[in-house]
Design a protein around this nucleic acid. Structure first.
Lengths: 153, 153
DNA sequence: ACTAAAATCACCCGAAAGTATGAACCCGAT
DNA sequence: ATCGGGTTCATACTTTCGGGTGATTTTAGT
């Protein structure tokens, strides 16, 4: 019910806490005349970070898909080429591919979550779907199969 | 020469201006007791916006190229060659190599144990040693590193 | 505008994996 | 013979994964 505004509440509380902290510091240490500027910097930095984070959270990178048709000749050195057709066939979403790549790099669910700025639970969901689509039960198997199918290098 | 830091200077000036403005307002209108909170909100909003803008500015859009048609000439001549020297260097035993191979194939500890006719605990011990020798903490990382080092195909 | 798909998050539970420690056995080499 | 490395196993404990379920919100396509 309150989930919707959880974020706002969280921010509000954070701000309040910050202000309280600063007030307390003022009382405690009898900050000199430039106390205000100190506050300003504190708040500025805090909200600068919040802003950056928020932006990253809100702006899902608009992925422009450029469709190009070309013929590739490969010789001994083989650069990885994504099997896009298979990705579509299996119905693997772009987010799932991201998670797959990070997982294949050896990251734990928690690390992937941190990397993508989402909850670990979300990663679990993505992986569960991915496992189902790849018809496997474990991450190692998923990686092995994905490599075999040309989904990852 | 200063182009690089132009942005920073600009921000600094903006902040200074903002502070001056607030100070002036304080003198002019004899702001009430909650002036500080007003300041805080001002600065917060200001830097929140700055942060969002900054983030947007810095993150470049992702471009995904979708290849429609491709002709691939596969070169199958890449026989796996074990990096025996590295195996010796790292002091990886033959049993550990066996376990590594099976693990890389996606088997669980229990399955590996069944395959090798030993206890799952033994597998755990082997893997623990292997992880230490490869300097990793998880099986996926171990597999990734082993592949990279030429220990497994 | 409506709908389907995708992405997000939460909670519970059991299984698997990983850590730490100790110990027994075999086998080749000093 | 004994010393060290390799293999085997155990117990106990913590963390991580994966399965199942349900929900909300965003995005994209008709």
């Amino acid at each position: 019910m309150f989930k919707k505004y959880q974020l706002l509440v969280w921010y509000g509380l954070s701000l309040a806490l910050l202000l309280a902290l600063l007030r307390w510091m003022e009382l405690k240490y009898l900050l000199y005349e430039h106390a205000f500027e100190v506050y300003a910097v504190f708040i500025a930095v805090f909200f600068l970070i919040i802003g950056i984070w928020l932006s990253k959270k809100l702006t899902r990178p608009k992925i422009r898909t450029e469709v190009m048709e070309k013929i590739v000749y490969r010789d001994t050195s083989l650069p990885f080429e994504l099997n896009q057709k298979l990705v579509d066939e299996l119905g693997i979403s772009s987010r799932e591919m991201e998670v797959l790549q990070l997982m294949a790099a050896g990251l734990s669910n928690q690390e992937i979550a941190a990397q993508l700025f989402v909850s670990p639970n979300t990663i679990k969901t993505h992986l569960a779907r991915l496992f189902e689509k790849l018809d496997v039960g474990k991450r190692v198997q998923a990686i092995e199969k994905a490599k075999r199918l040309g989904l990852i290098p």
